[in-house]
């Protein structure tokens, strides 16, 4: 067993995990943050995407022990103080960018990082940015629209 310390959504969290524990399982089952979803456990679907030191990574392809000492942001940490939805979250609601919601946390984390790096992405850049996340419900059209709208919201509110 390994004792690890993660800073999750700004809060120092400690866990004792076997070495083989995936970061996704650590977040979900050891820390109770079930907003991060697990869709394939081989790194293809992107449902489990979280931000590690600000960069989106697959939490199912990361060992919790490797993440020791790093900052992790999950979907639970995207909203602002007091629970106000972030521009990305609001845009997804406004543009119907989700249906069953299972892939959504991965898209939200990915889009949040994408817009932090590139606040005014072209449609091609949006598509490339979210190209590693599967969605079985929406056909992606409204997800692209949501990311575009989120960029607008961020600019308007800057």
């Amino acid at each position: 067993m390994h004792s690890i310390t993660l800073v999750v959504n700004g809060v120092v969290r400690e866990a004792t995990v076997p070495a083989r524990t995936l970061l996704s399982d650590c977040l979900r089952h050891h820390l109770g943050l079930t907003g991060t979803h697990v869709g394939c456990e081989h790194g293809v679907c992107g449902c489990c995407t979280v931000l590690m030191d600000g960069e989106p990574v697959r939490s199912c392809l990361t060992l919790a022990v490797t993440a020791d000492g790093h900052e992790i942001t999950t979907v639970e940490g995207l909203a602002g103080p007091g629970g106000a939805l972030s521009p990305v979250q609001r845009a997804f609601a406004e543009c119907h960018g989700l249906q069953c919601g299972f892939c959504t946390p991965g898209f939200l984390c990915t889009a949040t990082a994408l817009l932090a790096e590139n606040p005014d992405p072209s449609d091609d850049e949006i598509v490339e940015g979210i190209s590693g996340n599967l969605c079985r419900c929406t056909g992606y059209q409204n997800i692209v629209k949501s990311v575009r709208r989120a960029a607008e919201l961020i600019r308007e509110e800057a």
Binding site: A19, R20, L22, E41, H42, G43, R58, C60, L61, T62, L63, V65, T66
Partner: peptide, 26 residues
């Protein structure tokens, strides 16, 4: 050796690889 893990960990998750020791160089 475990570096990025983007090829190794899928193999581990599918139990197609079962190394006795993992050396995490991160």
């Amino acid at each position: 050796v475990l570096a990025g893990g983007q090829s190794l960990i899928p193999l581990l998750n599918m139990r197609l690889a079962a190394p006795g020791h993992l050396v995490d160089i991160n």
